[in-house]
């Protein structure tokens, strides 16, 4: 999947996360994380994001994450939505998820 524009999904409400995905050329995956639970769960949040990107074959992207204590499944959901929006693809490959 190719990132062609900026895509954002999620909200800044409690238990949610707002994720913005944009192209960064060929600089690999860069994650800027702000989280109310960063001390406790920062590593896990980064791992969830990296694993999800890998499963979607995204090797290069800048990911801005503003987390309000979202569960892993909500982080995955918001990231996948943001990536699809950034790729300009409306039809989701549900079989691959």
């Amino acid at each position: 999947m190719r990132i062609v524009k900026t895509g954002t999904a999620g909200t800044l409400e409690s238990s949610d996360v707002m994720i913005t995905v944009r192209s960064n050329g060929t600089d690999g995956v860069q994650i800027a994380l702000q989280s109310i639970v960063e001390k406790q769960f920062g590593k896990q949040i980064r791992a969830t994001i990296e694993d999800t990107l890998k499963s979607m074959s995204i090797d290069h992207a800048y990911i801005d994450v503003k987390d309000q204590g979202a569960l892993d499944c909500a982080i995955t959901a918001r990231l996948v939505s943001a990536v699809y929006r950034a790729a300009g693809i409306e039809k989701i490959d549900w079989e691959a998820l």
Partner: peptide, 15 residues
């Protein structure tokens, strides 16, 4: 609509 569908999808499969 797309984000809600994905959120419900991931939650139903996990929680």
């Amino acid at each position: 609509k797309d984000a809600a569908r994905m959120l419900v999808f991931q939650n139903l499969r996990t929680l």
